[in-house]
Design a protein around this nucleic acid. Sequence first.
DNA 1: CTCCACCCAGAGAGCGCTCCCAGGGCCTTG
DNA 2: CAAGGCCCTGGGAGCGCTCTCTGGGTGGAG
Lengths: 346, 346
Amino acid sequence: MPEQSPGSRPTLEAVAARAGVSRATASRVVNGGAGVRQPLVDKVLRAVEELGYVPNHAARTLVTRRTGAVAVIIAEPEIRIFSDPFFSQQIRGISKELTAHDTQLVLLLLEGPGDFERIARYLAGGHVDGALAFSLHIDDPLPAIIRRSGTPTVYGGRPSWTSAPSDQGVPYVDADNRGGARAAVQYLRDLGRERIAHIAGPRDQTSSTDRLDGYRDVLLDADPALITEGEFTVESGARAMKELLDRRPDLDAVFAANDLMASGALRVLRERGIPVPDEVALVGFDDMVSVAEDTDPPLTTIRQDVEGQGRLMARLLLRGLDKDSAETHAPASVITPTTLVRRASA
Amino acid sequence: MPEQSPGSRPTLEAVAARAGVSRATASRVVNGGAGVRQPLVDKVLRAVEELGYVPNHAARTLVTRRTGAVAVIIAEPEIRIFSDPFFSQQIRGISKELTAHDTQLVLLLLEGPGDFERIARYLAGGHVDGALAFSLHIDDPLPAIIRRSGTPTVYGGRPSWTSAPSDQGVPYVDADNRGGARAAVQYLRDLGRERIAHIAGPRDQTSSTDRLDGYRDVLLDADPALITEGEFTVESGARAMKELLDRRPDLDAVFAANDLMASGALRVLRERGIPVPDEVALVGFDDMVSVAEDTDPPLTTIRQDVEGQGRLMARLLLRGLDKDSAETHAPASVITPTTLVRRASA
DNA sequence: CTCCACCCAGAGAGCGCTCCCAGGGCCTTG
DNA sequence: CAAGGCCCTGGGAGCGCTCTCTGGGTGGAG
C-alpha cells in the first residue's frame, strides 16, 4: 500500500486520468465494474492500486444518501454494562454481521438522563442508515425519539409497549423468556419439587416479567410468598434468597431470573448449610459466561444465544434497509429459542 | 420537533429562502452566527426551528474534511472482551469525553486474524478524524497499519515497541504498572513477608512485563522459582498458584498481576486450607469491579482508574486534532497513578 | 458635506462522487 | 453491402454545504 501523500488523497478524477478513461468509467469499475469492458477494468484497477485510491466516503454518501453506518444505542446506566457480559456479547454478534455487510458500527451510549436530546439530533442528522437499540425499561423515552426520527430500528429485547410478538410492527429480537422460564420450572417439577420459589428481576423490564409469566404458566396457583424480586445482581439475589428462606423455610427449589442472582442465592444457601441440590434445587437463566459454570455447584440454567441475537438484530435491520427487499416491508420480530443446560445445581 | 417529511429533509437553501436571506448567511448562523446581525440571526433560527432543519453531515464533511468521528479499535480475541470489564469501562470514559466534544464513536472490533486489511481500508478511507487503539500484544500488526494510514492515534496501554514514556512520540495512556507493582511488593515486604511469589501475566503484554519489572525492582534477587505466569484469567491463576505451592511450599506471600488471577489463587489456597492472609498474604492488581471486593477474603489490590484512562485517551486525541493547539504538536503520553487498596487478603 | 473605512450580506465556485443521457463503434441481419 | 440495434463510454449536472471574494450600506472623521 502506498504511503499516504501529505495532504490530499487521490480522487476518482486522478484515477481516471491515469487509466486514460473518464471519471464515469472509473466510478463504474470502483463500484463493481458492471458494464465495462475487461481491458478498461484492468487499467482502472491498476491505477487504483498504484495511486492507493480510496473512495471519499462523504462524497459518496452525499449523492447516494446512504451512510453505510448503523447506530447501536445503549441507554443503560453504567453499572449494568460493566458487570454484564450481555451487551458485550450482543455487540460482538452485531459487529460480526455488520462487518460482513461492510457497514460501520457507531456506538451511542447514553450519558446521563438528559442525553436523549443528543441522540435525537444525531438520528435526525441522517448520520446513519438505521439503528439497533436496547430499550429495556418501561417508560423509556428512547422509542418515541427513534420513531419520530424516522430511523429504521430493530430492538434488542421486547420493548415494553408491545405485548404480542407481532405487535405494532416494531421489530425486535428476544429470547423466548417465557418459554425458557416454563422449561426451568417444569424441569424442577419433574424433579419432584413441590415448593418452587422464584427470584424475579426488576419489574420494569420485559425480560423479568416474561420470565415471571413463564413461572406462573406452570405454577398457576403459586403462593405469592414464594416470589421475590431482585435487580439482576449477585447481591440482590442473596438478599432475595434470605427473604425467601425467612418466608418459606420449607421451599425445596428456586428458579432465579438470571445467573447472577442465582449465584447470590447459592452463596446464601451455602452459608446456611443448606445442601444444593439435595435440599434445595436451583436453576438460573442466561448461562452466563464465567458465572454459570464457575459456581459451586455449577448452575443448571437456561441458555440463550446472546451473540446470535445480536447477529440477528443486525441481519434484520440490514435486510429492512436493503431496498431490493423493501417489498417485504418492515422486518418481523424474532424470538430465539432457549435450552435447558443441566449441571449440578438441579 | 417537526415530524420528518416523507423523503427529503430540508436543506440550507430552504432555510435561507424561508428566512429571506442568502444560503451563506444561513450557513453562518447555523455555525455560530458570528458576524451576522441579530435580527437576521433570529430570522434564520426561526426558520431552522420551523423547518426542523438538521445540517447534512456528509455535505459538511465533504468540504470541511472533518468527520467529527473517532474510531475505537479493539484488536482482541473475544474471550477477553467479555470477561474483562476493562474495555467496557475504558469505552465508557472515552464515550463521555467524546460526547462532551460532540464527536462520534465508531467501534471497530477485529473479526478474526485476517481482518486487519479491513481496518486499514477504513482508516485510509478518511471516515474518521482520529483513532483510539488498544494494541496489547507484541508483534501486533495494528500499529504499523495505523501509522501507514496517517491517522492520528492515541493508544491505550503502552505499545510494546516503546520502552520509555516519551519514546518514539507515540502517544499512549497507561497506568503506572511498574510503580503499582513496586508498591504492592513493598507493602508485602513491610508486612514482614520474606518469600514473596509473583504470578505474572502473559509475557507478550507490556502491562504484564511492566508489573514483573516492578516486582523485580523491589526483589532484586528473587528466586526464579517464585515467579510463574498466567493468562490473566481465574483458571490460569489457580493453576499458577498450584505450581508455586509445588515449587516453594514455604512461600508466605503472592503478588498476582491481576485480580482475576488473584481470585483463582485464592481459591486454591482455600482448597488447601492455607489461611489468607495469616499464612500467605495476597495482593492483586486492577481493583476490578465485582471481583476484588467480592472474594473471600476481599482482595488487597492496586487500583487504577480505568474510566479515567479512557477519558484521558480521548482528551489527548481531541486536543491533538484541534488545529488551534496543533502548535503543541503530538500529544505526550500520560502515565496515570495507581493506589494501594487495603482489604483483608494482605 | 464629502470621503473613506469598515462591516455585513450575497454570489459563486467548488468539495468528490454518482448517475442520467447522449453518442459512437461494432456486430448482426436483411 | 447497407442499415439497424445494442452495448459501452464520456460529458455534465447536481447532491448540500462551506468559504472566499466582491459589493453595498452605514457610520465616523476631516
